[in-house]
Amino acid sequence: MNNVVRNNSAGFLALPAILVVTIFLFIPFAVIFQNSMTIPSEGGFAWSVKNYTTILGDSFYWEIIIRTLRISLITTAAALLLGYPAAMYLYFSKSRWRRVFLFVVVSPLFISVIVRTYGWLIIFAPSGALNAMLPEALQFPIYKTETAIVIGLMHIYIPFMVLALNASMAKIDGRFLSAAYSLGASRVMAFRDIMLPLSRPGILSGTIVVFSVSMTAFSTPVLLGGSSNKTMAYIIYQKNILLANDHEGGALAIILLLLAMVSLTVFNTIGDAAARRRGGAR
């Protein structure tokens, strides 16, 4: 059997999947792009950037954009701060509890986001579990706040952070730390000089994943934040579903997509700069 013949004949097996992506990703994108760049006019549609200028000229939308960025940033930072020690536990633990811990971290991924969100809803609700367990003097309003959104999002997306960190820490040879200790480094030094720089790829990928899913999350901010803490996803829903405005709705979707892409570029740049600074240090 000739290799060349076999490969040529097998390559076309990818065709259906390629077609599905091409047709259902690129054509629909063209559709929303066209919708976002047109406005209804008599007898049809006219090209215009009015949808964008309306949105970007309105402080109402800016407030929502900034809230969305703020929530995603805090969520990502919290997920990193909490996820890093969790990944370290997975890295260092050799006991049988390690597997249990990993299972506990990973298994919520099998449960619908809506259910995990609802779990926080009945914890935070006025008659919910949190207030039931706190003495009256310590009770505080958390239901329908940004804090509630952040906690909910962080809980839902932290497994991604831990898995990303775990994947990059798994590549760190344990002997690097032994070597550092044998050369006299303290735990803090070994962490700062070895662990942290070598886990940077995981920090970067975990941050990027958590940030982008937090930024575009829909059901969690809606259920835990309510209408007084609208995020981008919330108004996209409002515009497209409740108001059926495809033009401004499309523009909002594209703005969100651009925002996400710009943020990721920023993260990547910061990550590269950190790597370069480290590499250049001598």
């Binding site: 040879d173 002997r175 032994s178 050369l183 480094a185 000089d193």
Partner: peptide, 29 residues
């Protein structure tokens, strides 16, 4: 502790810190 023993170790896999140059590795201790 390992730090206090002042024992030099050469590992089978060398365990050189991959993000540091040869000189930085030697200078680390």
């Amino acid at each position: 502790s390992q730090q206090q023993r002042e024992i030099g170790i050469v590992f089978q896999s060398y365990a050189l810190f991959p993000h540091m140059t040869a000189a930085e590795n030697i200078a680390y201790g």
